[in-house]
């Protein structure tokens, strides 16, 4: 049985191997993605983002338990940053998810960003496809601990939840662009500590004066304590409600179009970058051109234009 079929019949080992093939861009990765596409599109993809230390991983563990108790099969992609110096990474999100590890209806995979800069890896969208092909009911994507502007999660998830905790700042912080524009649901986690009421009030105030693209959905603020298992059911209800409301409107198709565009841009970008790097390093004509630029016989702008034409021209490109 081929790997895509094995994944369709929920072979966890096959899924794990396929994720590596895609992540490493090993030979045949595109064939797997091409083949799996027909099996995708039925999962609810939920993005969980927010600054480091607010409790994203712990909250996801509770969220997944709740989904599983409702009979759902849950995939989790937990992303941590790659070191810009060594290329290595510590992937430590699973520490908070120990209780899920032996659950047969949960599949967790840790990913390093490997150069992705928007809070996810460049291959995250492809890995989501594999999990969709596995017929996951719910796929939860945990971004790296984000700053103010790591917002790529909106390009891969249908429902985005931004997790914050009390005492992260005053109401001016909540007015800023970036993180606080992308949430469909805002979560104040650790509501058992001081400052939770103020944090919720700041956020609700911010939402009340902002404009949102869909009249079917106004972002909601939910208080949770992952450690004390408070607010988890309310959160799950809000996630369902969000998808339901947007499905009834034009919201979901619009989002799916955006997700698709992002995915296709990624594929083209990858192929383009590979070709360009190959040309720069191996193509004699291109190397000669660069020497000419170095000797000031031609300017870098004209030379780049020539290289660009060669990269995209199938007849001229001989990298394969």
């Amino acid at each position: 049985m081929d790997i895509v079929k094995k994944i369709f019949y929920r072979d966890r080992y096959a899924l794990s191997k396929a994720i590596s093939i895609i992540e490493n861009r090993e030979d045949g990765y595109l064939d797997i993605l091409k083949d799996i596409y027909k099996n995708t599109g039925k999962s609810h993809v939920i993005g969980i983002t927010g600054p480091p230390g607010v409790g994203k991983s712990t909250l996801i563990a509770e969220l997944a338990q709740e989904f599983v108790s409702q009979g759902k099969y849950v995939g989790i992609i937990a992303i941590d940053p790659t070191s810009p110096f060594s290329g290595g990474a510590i992937l430590g999100d699973r520490i908070r998810m120990n209780d899920l590890e032996l659950n047969k209806n949960v599949f967790i995979r840790s990913m390093a960003t490997r150069g992705g800069i928007g809070g996810i890896a460049t291959t995250t969208r492809n890995i989501i496809r594999l999990m969709e092909g596995f017929q996951m009911d719910v796929i939860i994507v945990e971004t790296v601990g984000t700053g103010q502007a790591d917002v790529d999660i909106i390009n891969v998830a249908e429902t985005v939840a931004v997790v914050l905790s009390p005492n992260l700042g005053d109401d001016i912080q909540t007015l800023k662009a970036g993180m606080l524009e992308i949430g469909d649901i805002f979560i104040i986690n650790k509501i058992d500590i001081e400052g939770a009421d103020e944090a919720i009030a700041y956020l609700e105030n911010m939402i009340s004066i902002a404009k949102y693209p869909y009249k079917e959905w106004m972002p909601v603020v939910i208080g949770t304590s992952a450690l004390k298992k408070m607010g988890i059911k309310e959160l799950v209800d809000a996630i369902y409600q969000h998808k339901k409301n947007l499905s009834a409107s034009k919201g979901i198709p619009k989002r799916n179009e955006r997700v698709l565009q992002y995915e296709m841009e990624g594929i083209i970008y990858d192929e383009f970058m590979n070709r360009m790097r190959y040309m720069m390093e191996h193509d004699p004509e291109t190397k000669e051109l660069m020497t000419e630029v170095y000797n000031k016989n031609i300017d870098p702008y004209t030379a780049s234009q020539k290289i660009l034409e060669k990269v995209i021209d199938k007849n001229k490109f001989n990298g394969k």
Partner: peptide, 23 residues
């Protein structure tokens, strides 16, 4: 290297499950 660390007091079953899932 990409290092997955799963914390304390793991059972052999847990360790092997993670090793397979994480390839």
């Amino acid at each position: 290297m990409e290092v997955i660390y799963t914390g304390l007091r793991q059972t052999p079953d847990q360790i092997v499950t993670v090793a397979i899932e994480e390839d």
